[in-house]
């Protein structure tokens, strides 16, 4: 993550290396999207592809939220992994069989979140929902 301060025109390199504290760090990727939401002050990053040392490109369908004004614990968390065109592409770097596909069309968002998110992240989501009544990421998935 590289940051250009438009006030000072200075480049910075941001680091979130404390794995486990911030949730699962996104895999290296290209062709993804990153949008800042003025609604909740978060950056939502979706999808892309990954193909390091692999002749075939792996398409990703995961969604991450990142709070740019706070890089403390829980500033970054994975909302879900999903399906692209009916094919599940597991997140690179995770152990095979450890992660399950989120069946977005066959279960409620609450069920999906309960199944795919670590407990501490679910707690953060509940706190956030209670505070704002609505989670933009969940709304998007519906």
């Amino acid at each position: 993550m590289h940051v250009l301060d438009l006030q000072t025109m200075t480049w910075h390199e941001g680091k979130l290396s404390n794995y486990g504290t911030h949730g699962v760090l996104p895999a290296a990727r290209s062709n993804h999207t990153a949008e800042y939401s003025s609604y909740d002050g978060r950056i939502y990053m979706f999808g892309g592809c990954y193909g390091k040392d692999n002749p075939e490109v792996i398409f990703l369908s995961d969604l991450y939220a990142f709070e740019p004004s706070w890089t403390g614990p829980r500033s970054l968390f994975e909302i879900c992994i999903g399906k692209v065109a009916g094919i599940h592409y597991p997140l690179p770097g995770t152990q095979k069989g450890k992660r399950k596909t989120a069946k977005l069309k066959q279960e409620s968002v609450e069920e999906m979140l309960t199944r795919v998110l670590p407990e501490q992240v679910r707690e953060a989501l509940v706190m956030y929902q209670q505070k704002h009544q609505l989670l933009l990421g969940v709304k998007t998935l519906k």
């Binding site: 006030q7 000072t8 390199e13 941001g14 680091k15 993804h32 990053m45 004004s69």
Partner: peptide
């Protein structure tokens, strides 16, 4: 890659200072 504009961002975990507005480049 991707890029987005943010009003402020904390660049380092151990430094609570925020900078901005800034352009964030990902991947």
């Amino acid at each position: 890659h991707s890029a987005c504009l943010v009003p402020n961002i904390q660049v380092h975990t151990d430094d609570p200072t925020t900078i901005g507005p800034a352009i964030v480049i990902f991947g």
